[in-house]
Design a binder for these strands. Structure first.
Lengths: 212, 212
DNA sequence: TAGATTGTTAATCGATTAACAATC
DNA sequence: TAGATTGTTAATCGATTAACAATC
């Protein structure tokens, strides 16, 4: 289906396309032209047509794109309909924030289990998700095919936990620890980092620059 | 000091440079060549020299870079020594995770106040940070020059809170809500988004692609 | 000094934008 | 049909890589 390797610049824009198309869809918009979408997203029409054409011709000359259809196509491209599963490691504040508030379901994931060491949490559940002791990780993953491990453990535990997830064969790690995981040790695992510090420092640069 | 507009590709790499240099510094490394740093970061030596030369000549021929000095220079460039201040809006799980666990201080920020509507929190403090009622926001910001507002409120409140922060004259908004803020309404405010959903969907794409 | 490594200029590569024939 | 808008090819722009003289 796909012609060549899709550049990561394009891939990073896909979730934004999805988000905007979903908003339009929910708002009842039936069709949209690349020009109109570009304007509302702050991109160029050319870029949108170029990006989408990596995956196929979803539009129609003289008409534009059907919002519902395009939204669905982008969802498919992003793998949102593949019944991905996730487990989360670490049920501290951040872990709990994700467990209780992040809409895994509407992003195509089912959050199946949480792991922690806190005896007051283990055996219970959070937001409908059972909490197991971290020692049960291998046993659990052995029996439950899991796509992604979400890492919200304290920094010192991060690398070890990543290794254990990799050894159990997860496809990806969603890394919230401010630690660089050893990708070269786990070539087969895709790692996506959410580095809060990098983000804040970028903002710090931007606001500092203004005042030079 | 700076010649021209620095490209955002370069800016996004600066925090990673800082992180690596800080690790090296803490580990006691005194000097490093662009080649060695490149290898450990998965970049090219050319790129590192090119990036750094945007800001000045920090190295020495035949020697490389002094780690402590370069770490300091990058920190300065990032604005880490400008005594930035921040307030956080929303002390739910995510807000609390940031208040209690995120090292604002070592990223050059002082987290001065939190705002929420929960009567059981207002008037108290979290992680040493006083919690005020959101109604007190304007009063507080009027009296306390604040660089950044951290947005960890529920999605429906996000845009309104962003407007209020902008009106009070913050320089930047660190946005954790899955909402696109109206940048065009607040040209003077720099917005840095941490879109969890975009990040997870990127990972979803990467692991799905493997299995085509 | 000789070897190493920078900062910078030139060459290459890739991504974005523009243009336009195809066509709904 | 005429107007609008796509998908795609070509042109431009920008970012990365390579090369090398300068020099510590």
């Amino acid at each position: 289906m796909r012609k060549e390797k899709i550049s990561s610049a394009v891939i990073r824009r896909l979730p934004r396309y999805y988000r905007h198309l979903d908003d339009l869809y929910r708002g009842g918009t039936v069709r949209i032209s690349s020009g109109a979408l570009a304007k509302s997203m702050g991109l160029t029409a050319s870029q949108i047509r170029q990006d989408l054409s990596c995956f196929g011709g979803f539009g129609q000359q003289g008409y534009g794109y059907n919002v519902e259809r395009l939204r669905g196509e982008v969802a498919d491209i992003l793998g949102m309909n593949r019944a991905h599963t996730a487990v989360i490691l670490g049920a501290g504040n951040l872990g709990r924030a994700l467990i209780e508030n992040f809409p895994f379901q509407s992003n195509g994931f089912r959050l199946a289990a949480a792991f922690d060491v806190d005896p007051s949490l283990v055996g219970g559940s959070l937001g409908g998700v059972p909490v197991y002791h971290i020692d049960e990780l291998e046993g659990y993953l052995g029996g439950h095919k899991t796509s992604v491990g979400v890492l919200t453990v304290p920094a010192p535990a991060a690398v070890d936990m990543a290794r254990r997830l990799a050894k159990c064969g997860v496809d990806g790690i969603w890394n919230f620890t401010n630690v660089e995981l050893p990708q070269q040790e786990m070539e087969q695992v895709r790692i996506e980092d959410v580095h809060f510090a990098d983000s804040l420092l970028t903002l710090s640069y931007m606001i500092s620059e203004e005042q030079v």
